[in-house]
Simulated scan of single mutants.
Amino acid sequence: MASQLNLSHVYDTFKAHRVATLSALGLAVAIPFARNDYLTYLSYGPGGLPYNVAGWLISTIVLRIISREGLSANIYNDRNLPFADEPGFLPNAFPPRRASARPKLGSHPVPQRQLEQLPNEHIRQLLIERFEALSEQATESGLVEVRQSVLERQHKGIFVSSSRSWHAVAQETRGEISHVHAGLDGSVHVTLSPEDCKKVIAAGWGQRHGLDGVKVLKKLVGFTIPVNYILIYAPRDEAEVEIVITIVKASISFMADSRELLE
């Protein structure tokens, strides 16, 4: 009987203070979640958004709502895409199937980062060195120029040379071709031909950006991200570094509209 009276009292109290009670319960659940989510955002290192609460709120509240899945390659079957009917720039039967399951990525669309299967310091530095060497080679060929990324803002990026004509995809990225996330994870963003995008995704080497092709993004930030914009997972050994560099080479060739690097 006492137990029934106590439960009745609790119920009456809840009815009398329903809003306050639900608000308190909501806060009890939301505050730990928000704290953990914010710490996850910080764990990526600096990216395209402010590296603080403001950046986290933008990515969490605004960009998560409009982001979409990134593993489907069906979008590249649209014959209206620029270069949809043209051959890619990757070698035949390349890349080979990646040796493990895809790494887990952070839940925030920006910055797009992987949370596991990260390279050690030696491999990360080797990737950066090979990326810089390829950038220098392409610069000497007059294909590209190197400057601060306009998409990530924290890293140096490879851009189509201002002396060359820019096709529609290059104009959409403001000329940016590729950049390495040189901080913690060592993943790479590249811009590939539709055919090469399909090959990379099918082989388990990367995935699309969560905001690619989202038209409302232009109203929010003034530009859009093409569906050709792909995250390449970080290499874990020297052989995988060479695979990633070959993909970057194909990205330069596509964006600069030249097969000179492939010869």
Rank of each mutant, 00 (worst) to 15 (best):
P91G: 15
M255W: 14
F131A: 01
Q4K: 07
E242V: 04
V190S: 08
V144H: 06
I58E: 12
R102M: 04
H189M: 00
T173S: 07
I230G: 08
G48I: 04
C197Q: 08
A168S: 15
F33G: 09
V214E: 06
N92H: 08
S8H: 02
W166R: 14
A84L: 08
R68W: 01
N52L: 03
N77I: 05
V188P: 07
V10S: 06
M1Y: 02
E152V: 08
V144M: 13
L25P: 08
F33K: 11
N92S: 11
A182R: 14
S141G: 11
F223I: 09
P226A: 14
K199A: 07
L134C: 06
H108D: 12
S149C: 08
P91E: 14
Y38G: 12
V62I: 15
I252L: 01
D37C: 02
G47H: 08
G142D: 11
G47F: 01
G186A: 03
G142M: 09
L211R: 04
L220P: 03
S59Q: 02
Q148W: 08
K156L: 13
F159M: 14
D78L: 05
E69L: 09
R97E: 02
N6Y: 07
I58A: 13
R174I: 14
V169W: 09
L22N: 10
W166N: 10
R98C: 01
H9Q: 11
V146M: 12
V146E: 12
F83C: 15
F223G: 06
V150H: 09
E129N: 05
Y11S: 05
N228D: 13
W56D: 06
I128P: 12
K218I: 09
G186I: 03
A170S: 14
N80I: 04
G213P: 10
H108C: 13
V214L: 04
Q154Y: 03
A202W: 04
I225Q: 13
N52Q: 03
P235N: 05
P194H: 04
N6F: 06
H9P: 05
P226T: 10
A133W: 08
I177R: 00
L63P: 07
Q207I: 10
E195S: 12
I177Q: 04
D257H: 14
T173H: 05
V180W: 00
P119L: 00
Y229E: 00
G55V: 02
E136K: 05
E172D: 01
K104E: 10
I61P: 07
H181W: 00
F94E: 03
A138T: 08
T139L: 06
L184E: 07
R174L: 15
V180M: 05
I247G: 10
D237I: 04
N228H: 15
T13A: 02
L231I: 11
T191N: 15
F14R: 02
P119C: 02
E116T: 13
R64G: 06
